[in-house]
Design a protein around this nucleic acid. Sequence first.
RNA 1: GCGCCAGUAGCUCAGCAGGAUAGAGCAGCAGCCUUCUAAGCUGCGGGUCAGGGGUUCGAAUCCCUUCUGGCGUGCCA
Length: 550
Amino acid sequence: MIKDIIHDHLINCLQKLGISHEKDFTVEIPNNTEHGDYSSNCAMVLAKENKKAPKSLAESIIKELKKNKNYKKIELAGPGFINFYLAPSFFQRIFWDIRESGENYATSDFGLGEKVLLEFISANPTGPLNIVSARAAAFGDTLYRVMKRVGFAPSREFYINDFGNQVDILAESLELRLRELQGDVIGEFPYEAYHGEYVKHLAQKLNATEGVRVFMMTEKDRIEHLKEFALAELLEMQRNSLENFDVVFDGWVSEKTLRAEGVVEEVLSYLYEADCTYEKDDAIWFASTKYGDDKDRVLMKSDGSFTYFVPDLAYHLTKIQRGFSTLIDIFGPDHHGYIPRLRAAFSAMGYDEKMLEIIFLQQVNLFESGERVKMSKRAGKIVTMDDLINEVGKDAARYFFIARKANAHLNFDLELALKQNNENPVYYCQYAHARICSIIKKAKKDKIWPKSFKQELLSKLNKSEELAIIQKLSDLPELLMLIAIHREPHRLATYIEELSAMIHKYYARYQIVSAKSKELSQARLMLLETTKQVMAIVFNLMGISAPEKM
RNA sequence: GCGCCAGUAGCUCAGCAGGAUAGAGCAGCAGCCUUCUAAGCUGCGGGUCAGGGGUUCGAAUCCCUUCUGGCGUGCCA
């Protein structure tokens, strides 16, 4: 990476000059192009420890730096910045490296194979996935893809909450719908029950295959049977929705199975050993306040059943037991009260709570015609993930979900996502890719596309727009590392928009295919071909398609 | 009340973990298709970075505080 190369040069010079460099300094791309291609603050940062004025320090560093031919110009500017203007040949060499890397460009072993578990969605299996789940799916999956590319060993998991109250209510709701179908008068549908149409559909399906036989079972067997049926159906439904969204999980972990395997008891015994449990009001409590929570939490309710917390904690324990050293939970906006107790339990069991990392996704508001679309889960009036994908398509949905940072509310404009014009950033970016494809097609038709691009063509790429595109391409490896470290996939969207803008402008300003000389055309085609490849890499990370034509 | 998150152009949002004159898209106005896709490009206007204090060479960015909005504060999940 260019920044690293410059940073290394600087360190070299500092050592040669005997300048102490305890403090870290940076090399960055200035936001003002008049400040060079790259800029370093090293003279200002190191001034104090060397007891020199920033400017005089900078002057001696620059004198030494100028011996290197990679730079066209090096300037001292402002309060002591060192600004670097790179020689075109330097950019051209960088570009050639990017080309040679091909599809492997911007892969690295940066993550050192660290096992990271990404848990996301983990919605109740009691209905279709909603749009917050869709956001979580896009976010989690893209983060996964980026982390994998830069050398982590990430894994995606979905925790199935297939035990307990909600599932019981689901079974009861199904039973009522079934009885309805068989002509029973059931009166008003209970408030707490699941009102969604999908329950009726399940009932119809079951009625068609099993009919009255369901009611010949004992009540206990019947409820179990209904539960199993509904869970299997709904899980399949959720899995399908996710597949349509190009999100595939590496593991689906069932709460019910965990309970059967005894992990829950294991967790309880650890908490008990840590001497942080007690009994009160017929319930068993976890003294989480000992570890920073603001109130103690119930582990076992007075009716003898566990709270949601205990099996979930057991699940987290299995993550550690399976060798994951970083556990990332991607939660919806309504769970942050839950974190202190999870952390407290980690501490109590002797694990470093820093292993546990929580990312909160804020809520999603749908807008249509400038009006907020109101949703009500209780009344079964929700816009589901499937609805959204059917309406705006996978590409637009994934793009818009990724384009916002996690902890910001997301206003999803349905009309905008549907627009096939310049107002819609998804199309803007995909169009840039399609444009390149069509230029390449034309070049092949006009027979100026070479069998292979010769390295000598590089010197033809010297327009400022061309060098800027190369610089942008060269940013990607570092960007992916930053995205992985800071868990910020939204930066992919910013990147692809900037790159796309550069391509559209380049297209408008320069003739590619019928440029004055064949060599010049080929040089530009070479640049575009590589840009296309880099764009495809980014689109793939975002899980959206890279269309050849639009 | 307490806790978490947010507040940047008319709107939707970036801002590279402290850098130089705060950016982009949309909306508004004015232009550009006999030429590789006009789903594009060019130009113009638009800001008390919610307010106030602090830290330092330097703050939208870090600390404190006030205000506004969202969410949470179950023996629900």
